[in-house]
């Protein structure tokens, strides 16, 4: 019994850390431009396949770096090549980004077939923690997640560019008044969001699956987490990621994996009914 609880605590923490990685980029992009980027899940897929393809040639660390860089570049590309031209219309952007994700899914299917691929462990081996056997890669995901959150926190509080991002996500009008270069902020945000998605994608691809359809589930997770956390709030997203991560772990332990999405729907309906602004959402001032 006790050991079950410990297992849930540890497994939940590992999976939540990855969810936080996925949700942060999604919420940042919403924060600075009011855009829900539905290609976000496809960026994860790009990183996972990049690792899959390059790792045999340039090694595991090299594969990870290429995956992160490629996801960041792809994110930047989605913004510069598509979203930039349509972002004034939120609804069109919403639909266009999901169509772009579908196109990427088909492109990946053409390149690698529908078959799910198995990724080489980034750090092979496993260790028993309090009786729970964890792969090193799960621990690595946890460490990566918090290191990246720490780096992001430093960036948005201690650098000029980072502070501009933070200011824009608080008040776009206010940021423009204080001389923030909005297009530059948006470009940087998409780049950073892509890098976060890249890290998340490599771990999801490694620990769950790497297939052309792997984009959808992380996308819905990010979407849910951001609504629960309060759209635009990074702190809210991290907390909501852990909330969802643990609830999922519990659901899998008690009801079985197929019920994950059912429980998720019930939670999101409850949030929408009773606290639609989310944990850290704000009511708008005039």
């Amino acid at each position: 019994m006790i050991s079950d609880i410990i297992t849930i605590l540890i497994v939940g923490a590992m999976i939540s850390a990855i969810y936080a990685l996925i949700a942060i980029g999604f919420t940042m992009i919403f924060g600075v431009g009011g855009i829900l980027n539905l290609t976000h899940g496809a960026l994860l897929m790009i990183a996972a396949y990049a690792y899959f393809v390059t790792q045999p040639y340039i090694g595991r660390a090299g594969g990870v770096i290429v995956g992160i860089v490629l996801a960041a570049v792809a994110s930047y590309g989605v913004y510069m090549g598509l979203v930039r031209y349509i972002e004034e219309n939120v609804v069109i952007t919403f639909m266009a980004t999901i169509m772009a994700a579908l196109a990427l899914q088909e492109a990946m299917t053409m390149a690698f077939s529908q078959q799910a691929q198995v990724l080489t462990p980034i750090m092979p081996g496993s260790v028993a923690i309090a009786g729970t056997r964890m792969q090193y890669d799960q621990l690595l995901a946890f460490v990566f997640s918090w290191v990246m959150i720490g780096m992001l926190w430093y960036y948005v509080t201690n650098t000029k560019d980072g502070r501009a991002i933070l200011a824009t996500s608080m008040s776009e009008r206010g940021a423009i008044f204080t001389g923030v270069d909005l297009p530059r902020v948006r470009r940087q945000t998409w780049l950073i969001a892509g890098a976060f998605a890249g890290v998340g994608g490599i771990f999801i691809g490694r620990l769950q699956q790497t297939s052309p359809e792997m984009w959808l589930e992380p996308l819905t997770l990010a979407f849910m987490i951001v609504i629960i956390g309060g759209v635009g709030s990074i702190k809210g997203s991290i907390i909501a990621a852990y909330l969802i991560g643990y609830i999922e772990t519990l659901t899998v332990a008690l009801l079985g994996a197929p019920y994950r999405v059912v429980v998720a729907l019930l939670i999101i309906i409850a949030v929408i009914m009773y606290r639609p602004e989310g944990l850290y959402g704000r009511e708008y001032l005039e």
Binding site: L36, T220, F223, M224, I227, I268
Partner: peptide, 8 residues
């Protein structure tokens, strides 16, 4: 919210 609920 509506889009998320329909997707889920």
């Amino acid at each position: 919210y509506f889009s998320l609920i329909t997707l889920l």
